[in-house]
Design a protein around this nucleic acid. Sequence first.
DNA 1: ATGGTCGCGTAGCGA
Length: 261
Amino acid sequence: MIVASWNVNSVRLRVPLIQQWLRQRAPDIVCLQELKCQDKDFPTEAFSELGYNSLVWGQKAYNGVALLSKMPLEDVRRGLTDEPEKEDARYMEAFALVEGMPLRIGGLYAPNGNPAPGPKFDAKLAWMQRLRARAQTLLQQEEMVVLLGDYNIIPADEDVYAPEQWRDDALCRPQARALWRTLLHDGFSDAVAHAWRGKARPYTFWDYQGGAWRKDNGLRIDHALLSPQASDCLHAVGIDKEWRGEPKPSDHVPVWVELKR
DNA sequence: ATGGTCGCGTAGCGA
């Protein structure tokens, strides 16, 4: 079973690219972020053609998350509080039975938080604390859980091309990194980091500006966190870097995990 | 010298 995440930076603009990638990677479940459209404008048919059900939580112009799945999705949750209408569209969760494996998937798009310090940074930290609360609840179920998406956190200096230039950025600030580590201390494992141990430059994002892609000035900010039960089934991990080099690319690339029992 | 990267939505914000 392959579970994937991709921050597509406008789903409508990226339809042909996403379709090509779905055909090639053939994931069972996909979390998309930064849809940048309302529910009514989501290209449902473009994905149903390829055999995917869509669950969408859109928002005008900004944010927006979706779950695509070949299998039916159940027990759907939108948001991290009891009042999703007061939240940005940044978190959606569902349950699926895939290849006989009961799996809970959370797709997320954490706030960027710049400039730091400031109100936006405070909002980022508060959002991460709500995510952690939800993550702890999920861990207590002792089930297979994958929380994946754009965390907007660079976990360590090895995950950024020029750490000294990024030291004061919201993505690198100690408070943000500390919150990331609480998720690991709680029991989640960082699938991409484990797979990339010993290998260099496991980036998932390259800015549109300044020739970042050409120079390989990347960041690792898209992550897949696995509960112990999911981690026990981890078979492979991938970053589909080549999609950053296509015409009209997103600034992020797909990240995926393969689980086998 | 100038512009400088995108996307939304059509100005200026967000990343």
